[in-house]
C-alpha cells in the first residue's frame, strides 16, 4: 500500500522540560478531511505546531508523501506542501488584505500555482470587497477567512486549520463551515482541529481524538458520532 499523504509516527514534543505530546501517531490520506478533536489543552495546537516545524518533535517523525519533513526548518516544511493556519488568526494587521495574500504567495511543491489572488477573490467574495483595507480592521470572521486564503496562496498539499470557528458568531461559523466544505470538495486535504464535534460533523470525513497529548481514538466521523463513550469521555458534548 502506498504511503498516506501525511503520516505522523510516534512523535514526542516537549516545551522546555514538560512533555506535551506522547507518541502521537496518525495519518491522513489525500483528499481526506480529518477532524482532530480534543478538549481545550489536549494538544491539538501543539500537534499542528509540531507538523509545521514550529515545535519540532524530539522523537518520532512527520512524513509528507513518503519524505521525512520533521527536523527541517518551518519554511522548508511549508515549501514541501504543508500549509498552517494558526488558531489566533495571525493576520499581518498593518498590511492590506491584498498584501497579506501577496506575502503568502508561493509555488506549490511541484511548481504549481493554481491559487492566485484572482482565484482567491472568486472563492472568498467577502475579501474581494476589501482588498485595500488593513487586515487589523477586519472582523474576526474576515480575519479567519484571510488567514485561510493567505495559506492557500502558498499552494499547499495539506492545510492545517486550527479552531477556525473559535470565538465567532454562529452565522460567521456557518460561513466558515461552508468555505471549508468548498475547499474539501475541490480536493484540498484538510486537518481541522476543533473542540466542537458538531462543527465538524458536516465537514470532516474522518476523526482523530487527542487527550492529554495522546491519540485515544481514530475512526470515520460517522463512527465517532455514534460512539457515546468516546464522546462523553474525551469531548465536551
Amino acid at each position: 500500500m502506498a504511503e498516506p499523504l501525511l503520516k505522523i509516527a510516534g512523535a514526542d514534543v516537549f516545551y522546555g522540560a514538560s512533555q506535551i505530546l506522547f507518541g502521537v501517531d496518525f495519518s491522513v490520506e489525500k483528499g481526506q478531511t480529518m477532524a482532530l478533536l480534543g478538549r481545550n489543552g489536549a494538544g491539538k495546537s501543539t500537534t499542528f505546531k509540531m507538523i509545521a516545524g514550529l515545535a519540532p518533535p524530539s522523537r518520532g517523525e512527520v512524513r509528507l508523501a513518503g519524505e521525512t519533513v520533521s527536523g527541517k526548518p518551518p519554511y522548508r516544511i511549508a515549501r514541501a506542501g504543508i500549509g498552517y493556519v494558526p488558531e489566533d488568526r495571525q493576520v499581518f494587521p498593518e498590511h492590506t488584505v491584498d498584501d497579506n495574500l501577496i506575502v503568502g504567495a508561493k509555488k506549490g511543491p511541484r511548481g504549481d500555482a493554481h491559487w492566485t489572488t484572482e482565484r482567491i477573490y472568486e472563492v472568498f467574495p467577502i475579501l474581494a470587497g476589501m482588498k485595500t483595507r488593513l487586515a487589523g480592521r477586519l472582523s474576526g470572521g474576515e480575519q479567519q477567512m484571510l488567514t485561510i486564503a493567505r495559506t492557500l496562496m502558498g499552494n499547499p498539499d495539506v492545510i492545517l486549520l486550527d479552531e477556525p470557528s473559535e470565538g465567532l458568531a454562529p452565522i460567521i461559523v456557518q460561513a466558515i463551515a461552508d468555505l471549508i466544505r468548498r475547499l474539501r470538495d475541490m480536493g484540498v486535504t484538510i486537518i481541522l482541529a476543533e473542540q466542537n464535534m458538531h462543527f465538524c460533523l458536516g465537514i470532516a470525513t474522518h476523526a482523530t481524538v487527542v487527550d492529554k497529548g495522546q491519540i485515544v481514538y481514530r475512526a470515520t466521523i460517522e463512527e465517532l458520532r455514534h460512539n457515546e463513550e468516546i464522546k462523553s469521555r474525551y469531548l465536551a458534548v
Partner: peptide, 25 residues
C-alpha cells in the same frame, strides 16, 4: 515590492512568515 511587504511582515510576526515558506534566517 513583494520583498518589502515580506520584510514588514517579518518585523511583526517572524514565526508566521517562516510558516508561509519564507527563509527568515
Amino acid at each position: 515590492t513583494r520583498l518589502g511587504k515580506i520584510v514588514r511582515a517579518l518585523a511583526i510576526n517572524p514565526p508566521m512568515v517562516s510558516a508561509l515558506g519564507i527563509n527568515t534566517t
